[in-house]
Structure formats: C-alpha cells, structure tokens
C-alpha cells in the first residue's frame, strides 16, 4: 500500500523570500526520505508546510487523504523534531517526554509500558527526573525525539535531529530512531546535510534548492 504526502504550494507569506513550487510524493515503501539541500533552500519551511504550521495556499494531503480540507494541527498525526528542540522550559524531562500522554486527545496516548520501552530505546531513563536546563545538547535531542514519538505520529518530520550530537553518538541515536520507526511503522522525513547519514538511513532523497525540487531518487542517484 502506498500512502501519499502531496505538498504543493504556489506562494507563501511574504516574510519568506522566494516562492515555493513543490509537488512532492512520499511513498511508504521507503521508511525514511531525506530532505537535502543547501542552507536557505527551504527545507525547514517544507517540513512546517507538511506539519501545517504555516498558513499558506498549500494543499497538503496526508496519509492517503486527498481532501484539500485544512486539518487542524492536532488531527494530522504528524510529529516533529525541531532543530532547536523546543523542549518546554517550564517542565522537567519526564513531563516533556510524557506531554502527549498526559494532555493529547485519548487516541494519541501511548500505553505506559510502550513509553517505558521508548525511553529505554533512546537511553533517557536516567534523565527523567532532571530539569531541562541541566541537559546537554545531545540529551535534549534524545528527549525531543522521545517526546515526538510518544505522541504516536504516523509521519515524523525531523529537522536535523542529531545536529548537537558527536559522530559516535549520532550513529547510535539514528540507529535508535530507525529501530523504533520500523517497530511502530512510522514514516520519516528527515532534513540532513550528512551524505553518510542519507546513505545509511534513507531510501529516497529529495534534493531541494531555492524552494524547488531539483532532483529526487535513490541516495546514490541524487548525491
């Protein structure tokens, strides 16, 4: 079965320079699609369009739902991991990680036992009692991944999710991410600059520049 994510936009708000003209199709026979391109190409903007953050005249049809109806953010089944992690500063690690479990609508509440294994998978069990401002950059990114996955998204958007981690930690964290998304059948779109990461993780690559799709295909054919 093929789930499709179509992103089309002819124009977005004027505060963002340039125009986006994209028609992207995401096939779930590739678990991970990499979004690749130079700085300022519009990669984060594309993730925000898919997530529904930006008000625009884009049409985003998620999970095979072709309707042009704009879905509220909370109904999209999309998770996002941000470049600057966006962990809630007034909550500790546990409350951040469990945010969706505590406060999201009931169908997106993860079972406690599954949450425990999620925390173990990402190695954050020993961090759960800590304050957010006591964490290192890498620890914050782990918590951010757990927080996004605990909301049980069908599609996970990752904006350079391991940028604050050293090379060894990066490989391990991406392996954790890969094993969890395979286990839970989650489709991933990941922004990254690292060719090795793309080859290791992604089945498909979108090469973006100046808001346009320049090339797409397998990692070896695009980069």
């Amino acid at each position: 079965m093929t789930q499709q994510v179509h992103v089309f936009q002819s124009k977005i708000c004027s505060s963002i320079p340039g125009r986006f003209e994209l028609d992207l199709e995401l096939k779930t026979n590739h678990r991970v699609t990499a979004l690749f391109g130079p700085s300022g190409a519009g990669k984060t903007t594309i993730l925000k369009l898919i997530a529904g953050w930006l008000e625009s005249n884009s049409t985003v049809a998620l999970h095979g739902n072709p309707s042009g109806r704009v879905q509220p953010l909370r109904d999209r089944g999309v998770g996002m991991v941000y470049q600057d992690d966006l962990l809630f500063p007034h909550l500790d690690v546990l409350d951040n990680a469990q945010f969706a479990i505590k406060y999201a609508r009931s169908e997106r509440r993860m079972e406690p036992s599954v949450f425990d294994s999620l925390c173990e998978n990402f190695g954050i069990v020993h961090l759960l009692g800590r304050k957010i401002f006591n964490l290192s950059g890498g620890e914050r990114q782990r918590v951010a991944l757990v927080r996004a996955l605990a909301a049980m998204p069908k599609l996970l958007l990752c904006d350079e999710p391991v940028s604050a981690v050293d090379r060894v930690g990066r490989t391990e964290l991406l392996a954790n991410l890969q094993s969890w998304t395979e286990r839970e059948q989650i489709v991933v779109i990941m922004v990254t600059h690292d060719h090795d990461e793309i080859r290791r993780m992604a089945g498909h690559v979108w090469h973006i520049d100046a808001g346009r799709l320049i090339a797409e295909g397998s990692p070896d054919s695009v980069i």
Binding site: A51, G52, L73, A148, A151
Partner: peptide, 16 residues
C-alpha cells in the same frame, strides 16, 4: 508561538 504549535502538533486542544 513555536512552543504552542509544538503542543498542537502533539494532539493538544487549544484549551490545553
């Protein structure tokens, strides 16, 4: 605004 959007994306209502 990004914190609020992050919470919405996790499935929270406006009230929450």
């Amino acid at each position: 605004f990004a914190y609020e959007q992050a919470a919405r994306l996790m499935g929270c209502s406006e009230w929450t």
